[in-house]
Amino acid sequence: MHVSSPIWLKVCVTCDRTVPTGPGQKGHGAQLADCIETVLQDRAVAGNITMRRVPCLSGCKHPGNIAVGAMGRATIRFHNLRPEKARVVVEMAARFQARGDGSWDEKAIPEELNDHLAAVIHAH
């Protein structure tokens, strides 16, 4: 169990792949990533939370995907997220980080994200 592993917060920057973006435009996912990055910069607790801008999280039909996880721990994916949800997403990551024993409890999901839960993958 890698309880000291950094928490990663992956954000799909391809969402919404059905909506083309022109030069200089940012898609839904990229905007969400920018907002999350801004929130992380503000938070002192973000020290061990690393955001990763990834090409896909396999939630294409529900654009606005993020996943929180760490080596040896559960991975939790959320979908249908708008950039306005950035703050609660970081709150989610902080709660995940706080559970240093590697366990996971669905009650730890902020209520605002309950309708956005896409998948919980327990550690192998």
Binding site: V54, P55, C56, S58, C60, A123, H124
Partner: peptide, 19 residues
């Protein structure tokens, strides 16, 4: 494949470590 899309190749390295 649709759920293992191009661009996500380095996830394999994460699997190698984590799994």
């Amino acid at each position: 494949f649709a759920w293992t899309p191009h661009g996500t190749y380095a996830k394999d390295l994460e699997y190698f470590v984590d799994l």
